[in-house]
Design a protein around this nucleic acid. Sequence first.
DNA 1: TAGAATACCTACTCATGAGTATGATCGAGG
DNA 2: CCTCGATCATACTCATGAGTAGGTATTCTA
Lengths: 235, 235
Amino acid sequence: MNSRRTNPHHAGKSAAASPSPWRARRRDREVKREAVIRAAARAFNRKGYHNTSLDDIAAALEVTKPTVYYYVTNKEHLLFQCFLAGIEPIRAAFREVKDLGAPARERLDAVLRHYGEAVASEFGWCMVRAEDQDLSPAMSRHIKALKSEIDQGIRRLIREGVQDGSIEPCDPKMTAFALAGALNWIAHWYREDQSLTPAEIAAAFVTIFEGGLRPRSASPVATRAPLRRRVRIAR
Amino acid sequence: MNSRRTNPHHAGKSAAASPSPWRARRRDREVKREAVIRAAARAFNRKGYHNTSLDDIAAALEVTKPTVYYYVTNKEHLLFQCFLAGIEPIRAAFREVKDLGAPARERLDAVLRHYGEAVASEFGWCMVRAEDQDLSPAMSRHIKALKSEIDQGIRRLIREGVQDGSIEPCDPKMTAFALAGALNWIAHWYREDQSLTPAEIAAAFVTIFEGGLRPRSASPVATRAPLRRRVRIAR
DNA sequence: TAGAATACCTACTCATGAGTATGATCGAGG
DNA sequence: CCTCGATCATACTCATGAGTAGGTATTCTA
């Protein structure tokens, strides 16, 4: 409708330089592609991967199945794209925190906060549950590698924190598993219980991780420990 | 072959008193039934619910599919039985701890330890992952109720602990989610990483929950807060 | 306006897997 | 021996869902 006819007449016949309408097309296509992925994420989130057919996803977009296949190669790739969309913010959090100078515990807290928000996000379920079993070996390896990268990042921050004294000495592997597990599990209940925002949840969890269950000595009332001699040795 | 013919001639014709061979049969049947459930749990654990066919389970038992159906009504019930087998030890833990007199934190620790071991058990995966989405509404409600019972039990122990001073004041709901989430997640990685026994894992987790990440005041070096010290060397 | 992409649909194929109808086998009891 | 019930197998049905073949409308280019 608009005056797009006035484009350069022979803007480059070779495939190399694409004329501007093509750009627009491409953008459109990319927008739609993302819409497909988001619709898939929502459906997977609600009904699970195996209980979601591509017909379902197509119906949610008010198109038909072949149209969906026009934008993605197959169901597995769809899940993979959702996974990537979910995990990317976490990777970004690590980059953001990398050269921040703060004690490792504070950097870890920041990462965990982003982690929690990512898990509570639209793609959280897909990220957390994209699993070995449902995927082809190649894709499974790929996903495992990305997950492992996150895991190793957390462990490293824990180790650094123990070294710089900002984190209580502990087993980095088990601690990383505990933290990630608690956060991952958000994906399971957040659908049904949205009484808090993702940011609030993440903040609450970090507070819990930091303080632990045993009362801090700062608390006056609680110090009156129940018989048991206080476990001063902690270390 | 053996002299069983000498049984009481007319040991009771009425349906009420069943003759002894029947008892034996029944026991056999129950044993086999449990074998089916265990085989299913193992298969679900390895390949996931949806990627496991009843033919697979039958093959693992070296029988055929109709034989499996002879012992269980359908796939969904099979998952449900696995779920029950997984969750029962946790319910038992609550009962065991109920009238124990100890401070709530210690009772909570005991429950969490059993919880962790249950999740790392043969049926852990089924218990943790038996979900809404894969099940009929009726069964979904049933499972949700049982899960909720556990959740409420944990919250109650937390509340009691906050009251009796054995637990740092906190939001019971979020804290329960964090604890249960961390433990539930064990089911996801324990298959691949069995470097520790379930008991060791549970113990490690409880230690982490108790202490928290922030160093305890007992530790002398750490009390000094965010003076960023040796962070620089990280690389 | 021809021609060529682009974007989308109708109508299939085909494999898989849950669940079943029916019959064979085998041990126990009469 | 003969029957009866318990146990298990062969050989199906049937629904679902992933993925495709081939066609149509629409839009841009020349």
